[in-house]
Nucleic acid binder design. Structure first.
Lengths: 317, 317
DNA sequence: CTTGAAACG
DNA sequence: CGTTGCAAG
């Protein structure tokens, strides 16, 4: 155990006992050598003290569920449990893979979260799909980029709240053979960036979801081997910087943890989750005006049910 | 229990105890009234005393497995167990749903049955497919109807033995909306009939498999409701008579049990198996020259793993 | 490796 | 309802 965990430096406070180990697969590393002083993200120890509900804060979560119906069928876990455990205010979902006809069956999924907004792919049934599920009623909601013709795949929901716009996005995967790379960058990323800039004229923006890009080497278990893999091409990484970060959006997890390895996705294909061969593809990016209000940007790597895990953002109001 | 079983007259010898009941779903009936003195087929009581292996006989079996790989994955049952239980000489399979590339993985499925012959659909992957698996080495084997262009779906294997040809057939389903009815009748049934007549010039024939036709009202749980359902249309039933029975093939189960309800197929769709809402679609038809040599033509309705159950034929040599 | 749809039964 | 192969990730 110790030998496996030494691959990245693990702080003493993060050491887990044998008995905790089974419950905390995130502690296992695939990296064979310690790299650049990176440390492993431990959601038990690396989070600030929780804010109590009598303080003013809002808790947002995001999760690529890889098929909502499959998730709900799973025993041993329900979206409801996450709600109870995390007591979030807003939950953003990606890859619901719902069709329009399925939406009614899940519209009132979570008691207390009466405000739910769903997009489905009309281009391909059972593909893509996003949702915002909220305790707070948004001032307004809009679907898609609006200004473009990229809205057939149900990849974006925007909810306007008092002090920010919340964008729940499922960015197109560049695909096997990178056959959709140019669409992803030249069309989607660009359009999304423009859309965000437009919104920022009136209010700060929070962009969350599966942005389908591991920004830096620290954000992927095997950077060298994935230089031409969808999600880690130099084109996508540069687009991520140019269209989002350079435009003033702050990667909240990275800001809080400059040297921390925290993955949010582990491919099913090679049992990547138990060896922590993961990627950080899910983000909370916030407009600069909000950056200082972030109390905690975190990952819940132990939540099962999807190839992605949920992430969270606690924002002081 | 008693009330459910009275829907068709059940002979005293067939009555089962409460404890046996769970194991014998075949005894349950969907018919709401006794009809025409029909009785239920009970494989425990309605079979002649078994022949011992020192007498000269051959035991043939046939089973539409509805996907051989799925069947083999099932726990609680394996094709091997059927071999051990039934000690057959030859097993005919339909709907193996194998592709050419899968055949090698199952070619030596059953120890002691070294002679195996497989057809696959080249028209549609994972569709149709038949096999003959034999302890006895056939004199010759041929695939398809040979004389026609209906062989792209892997629906027929013929094995020549000393005293008969054995045809393992998976007759085309007429499909939803009966869109393949005319092909089934005018092309397939006719070609098969001609093929059989040709073979009969040299030797008697045994035609077994999923013939996809419930011949008479006694052969289906709900005759009135299925007059336009694939497998019970008047066209298919007349074709069955004209092309096979009138041409001298004897329906061995029906000959042995003129008034017995014995189904071999229960659709998955409405849990038909536990209510015995079945059809008799699987047959052993034999040339008249063989009819008197039939010791037993039987059904094993309690064998799980497919929507069809295996049937058997014991033939004195 | 897993989801979901589609075809077929 | 259940199998299979398929596209997608």
């Amino acid at each position: 155990l110790a030998t496996e965990a030494t691959s990245i430096h693990v702080e003493e406070s993060q050491k887990v006992s044998e008995s905790d180990y089974a419950k905390e697969p995130w502690i296992r590393f695939a990296h064979k050598k310690p790299q650049k002083g990176w440390v492993a993200y431990n959601p038990r120890t690396m989070r600030p003290p929780p804010l109590t509900r009598d303080k003013d804060f809002v808790k947002l979560m995001s999760w690529n569920v890889n098929g909502l119906r499959a998730l709900l069928k799973l025993e041993g876990f329900s979206a409801l449990e996450l709600a109870q455990r995390e007591d979030f205010d807003v939950l953003c979902l990606q890859e619901t893979k719902l069709q329009e006809k399925d939406v009614e069956t899940v519209r009132d999924l979570l008691e207390g979260y009466e405000n739910t907004y769903w997009t489905c792919s009309i281009a391909k049934a059972g593909y893509s799909g996003t949702a915002i599920i909220s305790r707070i009623k948004p001032l307004s909601v809009s679907y898609g980029l609006g200004i473009s013709d990229h809205d057939a795949e149900g990849r974006l929901v925007t909810a306007e709240f008092d002090s920010f716009y919340l964008l729940c996005a499922y960015v197109p995967n560049s695909g096997d053979g990178l056959k959709r790379l140019s669409y992803r960058i030249a069309e989607w990323d660009l359009s999304l960036s423009k859309y965000i800039k437009e919104l920022e004229k009136s209010k700060p923006v929070i962009l969350t979801g599966d942005l389908n890009c591991a920004h830096q080497e620290i954000d992927i278990y095997n950077p060298a081997g994935n230089k031409r893999s969808a999600g880690f091409t130099i084109e996508e990484r540069e687009s991520f910087e140019k269209n989002f970060l350079s435009e003033g959006l702050v990667d909240t997890f990275r800001k809080q943890h400059p040297n921390v390895v925290g993955y949010t996705y582990w491919g099913y294909r090679h049992g990547g989750r138990k060896t922590n061969r993961g990627w950080r593809l899910d983000y909370f990016l916030v407009s600069e005006a909000l950056a200082d209000k972030v109390h905690d940007s975190y990952i819940l790597p132990d939540v099962p049910g999807s190839d992605h895990c949920p992430i969270g953002l606690v924002l002081k109001c």
